[in-house]
Design a protein around this nucleic acid. Sequence first.
RNA 1: GGGAUCUUAGCUCAGCUGGUUCAGAGCACCUGCCUUACAAGCAGGGGGUCACUGGUUCGAAUCCAGUAGGUCCCACCA
Length: 891
Amino acid sequence: MSLSAKYDPKSVEDKWYQNWMEKGYFKSSPNPDKEPYCIVIPPPNVTGVLHMGHMLNNTIQDVLIRKARMEGKEALWVPGTDHASIATEAKVVRMLREQGIKKGDLSREEFMKHAWEWKEKYGGIILEQLKKLGASCDWDRTAFTMDDDYYKAVIRVFVDFYRKGYIYRGLRMINWDVEAQTAVSNEEVQYEEGGETVKLYSVQYPIKGENIKVTIATVRPETILGDTAIAVNPKDERYKDLIGKKAIVPFVAREIPIIADDYVEMEFGTGCLKVTPAHDPNDYEIGLRHELEVIDTINDDGTLNEKCGVAKFVGKDRFEVRKEIVKDLNEGGYLLKEEEFTTRIGRSERTNSIIEPKLSLQWFIRMKEVSKEAHRSVMEDEIVLHPAKFKNTYNHWMENVRDWCISRQLWWGQRIPAYFYGEGDEDFVVAETTEEALQMAREQSGNVDLQSGDLNQDPDVLDTWASSWLFPIAVFNGFKDEYYNQENGKIKPGTNADLDYYYPTSTLVTAPEILFFWVARMIIAGFEYMGEKPFSDVYLTGIVRDKIGRKMSKSLGNSPDPLELIEQYSADGVRTGMLFSSPAGNDLPFDVKLCEQGRNFANKIWNAFRLINGWEIDESLSSEDNAIAVEWFQSKLSGAIEEVEDHFSKFRISDALMTIYKLFWDDFAPWYLEMIKPGFEQPIDKATFKATTGYLETILKLLHPFMPFITEEIWHSMKDRQDGDSIMLAAWPVASEVDTDKLKAASTAFEIISQVRNVRSSKNIPPKEPLTLVGNPNNSGLGDFEGFIKKLSHCPEITSGENPGGAANFVVGRDEFYIPLEGSVDLDQEKEKIQKEIDYTKGFLASVSKKLSNERFVNNAPPAVVENEKKKQEDAEAKIKALEESLAKLG
RNA sequence: GGGAUCUUAGCUCAGCUGGUUCAGAGCACCUGCCUUACAAGCAGGGGGUCACUGGUUCGAAUCCAGUAGGUCCCACCA
């Protein structure tokens, strides 16, 4: 035997992963003899690199998949990546910029070519990194949300939704970058921390037909020219009389109504709000409620147009106009005051120019209409969220669901299949192909001469989530022609073997922050196209944070590199480290110490294996002495298996791991192995050896989902295995009966041993110096474990007798023990110790007695509880009696 | 501002429908040990008024109300 005292995972982990891949153990296909268990990965951004959140997420998925596989289910974990339109496009733009290429100088086709090249070159690194972690995905099924078939599926769904009337075009305030002449997504708008200081102007508007004025406050006075109302809070007594009257916009002399709206804060400014529906998102909402006119006074390049109504401003930049208009307001007597004001100003991430809110036609999905089943299924626990608290959040969101804007002003993504054949907003058709679109356009326009060149496809692409919401169906090609029913827009049952078998999938493991973005929408799509939920359970992981509670992020630089962690602590170590402290839905405060703990655990297992591996078998030896230890551990193990199952059934993954951890570290190693361990270089009997290796195998199996590598390594090191005899495929352990009496007897024995060790420790007696243990003649006896008590407490002699005096003593249960220690015992100290025990027990007895003498307790509490209290009372009385006798004998 | 949720040992968390010494676990900490599987270890040990206040009950960490503080989601101030 020449095994190292330290487990070396480096070569082991790569070796086994490669072996599993070669053997095809991760592959899955429909098998009618087995129950399916399927997880689809939350597809990471194709640009992504593995971060700690992925580590946690994917470790949990691998644990679930590996366990299911061992349970004999047909386990499939589908991997994939998301094209992540915004993130990827931003990355490609940045790369091009570094090469001196501006996106604006490229045609759409040229840009897409660059993007695809980038994707082929750098995309999907993250999947390779997952392999290091041990992820047992069926890599042959790797999906990408912009694959041809996937792309077509997304378009197909858009067309179907449009034809079902679920999609409409509507005006929406978007963020407009006047420099780049493009809309930018919310994510691309940046705000300076703490806001910026600007001028807040108080402007007075005359009231029509009266000699009074109304004062509003604004930081964007140039938008005054687009005002179409003044709003006040309906509860505001100051302005009650003004409601319904007309105010007059300075310079343009437009009469605008004074309206009442709850949105207006009475405390802010003067309590009067100027309403410019074309240039402010909230004003737009107010405008909708009150049917106000929308006057769009600003051009795409940021200059004012003729609609502003003041000739000298037309064609000038909005900020130039701001300066001039302030001057004019002042001179005209409209300006009451100007003051400093701190507010947030949005700037474009790309050009750093100040964002202008701009109205634009966008595509929307009517969420109320499509989300009913998705709402119901979660409320009725057809889909169970873990932890359950997210059910409330989900409910709240679904009850107040807003329409989903699915168009994005980007190029990288699925382009909206709407084709315009004329100038009007309504002159378009929606179709899956240009051929179909042309035909429809000819019919719709009545112009049979239309050519494909006359069609202009909408330039926008779809929101990334409008593709990933199809993931659980699309990874099984559900939307391909042969499986899709054009008539009713549903997947045809019985035509797609994968979908029939694996759908609905089993568990979805993802982060709570995308519960609505992704999870809810997958549920909607699932019901819409499959008529069925997409998964049964949703496990929501926490956010990985650093020690001081900050979210781990690249920009903060507080996230360790996962691959380096694996290098340092092994994949098994990092996996267990992530799970040691991460209950579902709770944030995980990450500390490398956890990985160290995981690594240490691996080492502990390794050394236990080393010990067992080194034993020689002597067939002539009797197993009798060890029998009780073997029986005891069988019960202990079974109890642990039951507990693990219970934890898994509640998705308490870290508790399941902790149960096995403690079984190994607190029971198997220090008690079981020490009990049966032969003397140095002594052989062991065959039956005990067999039982022990059996136990080790069982524990390895329990551990395999968490620590796939070391368990496989030891599994094969224990003995020669047949080809295909991988622990990955071994049967998941089943509990046998638990003998609670045996467990109790053992824990009493262990307590006695601990007490002896305690005496040694406090009296500075070396651990192995032989001592004599004396039991009181009234003791209930040591039972089956006497031999092991002798062995582990190093008390070769156990006798019975009265307190010999000059002895250390202790009580376990009702039983008294003494250890004679000529001279080295301080009598007063011993007496004090006993007295303390008596006092404590008396206090306990008093509380129990008080309870029992309370008539209302005895009458109202359930009989079993009362019975229990009586038993406690008896035990305590007996113990006090024994202790007092002991004390008396000491004089 | 609306909603959700949380507060238990130094840290991270268990504690299910009130009832066993119910006040727990892991880590950290303290003491002593390189004892032939393991110092990435072994043996022993200390530590909490269960946020606060009140209520319901024979009995409250657990149920109810209020207070304080934290976190998350949604909406966001002209």
